[in-house]
Amino acid sequence: MSELAVTVLQFGLLLLLWILILSIVGAQGRDLMVSKKSRASTAAARSARASSAPAEERGSTSTPHAGVQRPRPRTLAVTDGPLAGTTLELGSAPIMMGRAQECTLVLDDDYASGKHARLFPQGSRWFLEDLGSTNGTWLAEEQLTRASTVEPGDPIRIGKTVLELRT
C-alpha cells in the first residue's frame, strides 16, 4: 500500500479516537451536573414552601384543592442529614425507609431504625406510616402516631434526616 494511504489511515485512527471521545462527552450531556441541579431544585422548593406557608395554617378539613384531581408528588428529596441532596423518583410503589439494606431508601443515619417508616401512594396522595421505630417519625413537627397524608414541602424527620415530597 502506498505511503500516502498508510499515513491517511494512521491519521484516520487518531481522528476516530477523538470522535469516540467527543461522542461520549456529547452523549453524556448534562449527566455530570449533579450538584447544580439539586441545588437549583432545592432553592425552588424552598421558595415554593415559603409562599405556601400561610396556606398550611388552614384547617385539616378544608383544603383549597379539595376535589380537584392533582398529580401525585413524584420526587422525594432529602433536605438535611447525612444524605442531604439526594432525590428519589417516586413511582406508584410504596417506599420503605430505614437503615436496613433492603429498604428502598437506605438512610445512612444512626438515629434511624432498620425499617423506620413507609411511604405509600393512595389516590393522589402519599401516606407516611411509622413502622414501630425506636426514635419515631415526625411529620411537620408532630410525631406520627398513625398513617397520615404528606403534602409536598412538609418536612418528614427520621432521626437526623429530613425529607420532603416535591411535585
Binding site: 383544603t63 384531581q69 389516590g123 393522589s124 398513625r146 398513617a147 397520615s148
Partner: peptide, 21 residues
C-alpha cells in the same frame, strides 16, 4: 402505632380524593 391507611385516610383528609388505584 399503625392503622390501616385505607380506613384512616377519609377521617383526616378532606373529601376522599379518588378511589384508590
Amino acid at each position: 402505632g399503625t392503622e390501616s391507611p385505607a380506613r384512616q385516610a377519609p377521617t383526616h383528609t378532606a373529601p376522599r380524593p379518588t378511589a384508590p388505584t
